[in-house]
């Protein structure tokens, strides 16, 4: 679905976390992001939105201004209202409440 170029990574998270089938998972993510299903898979729309929300990009230039990796996952967990294991473990080890 394009991964971090679109919203494939987030749809995948919903399949894993809530065992949602593809259409349900897409609808869930689209609603949380406030986009249509068509926009959800559009690389231009999603690149801008991902940049604005700080939820990780495929192209991360300029790097200093782009969220990627762990920082992006903190935001994704919040926006999608799910727990992400690596984020939870990171918080625990870093002593973040």
């Amino acid at each position: 679905m394009g991964g971090a170029r679109t919203a494939g990574d987030m749809v995948m998270r919903l399949q894993l976390d809530k065992k949602m089938k593809i259409n349900e998972a897409k609808a869930y993510v689209a609603e949380k992001l406030g986009v249509t299903l068509e926009e959800l898979v559009d690389v231009v729309t999603m690149s801008e939105l991902r940049e604005d929300l700080g939820i990780g990009l495929a192209h991360v230039e300029p790097c200093a201004e782009a969220n990627m990796g762990m920082e992006a996952k903190f935001k994704i967990a919040e926006i999608l209202d799910i727990k992400i294991n690596s984020v939870e473990k990171f918080k625990k080890r870093a002593g973040i409440k």
Partner: peptide, 10 residues
């Protein structure tokens, strides 16, 4: 590389 070059979802 899978994430940022190949566009993999996981």
């Amino acid at each position: 590389i899978h994430e940022r070059v190949l566009g993999a979802d996981s």
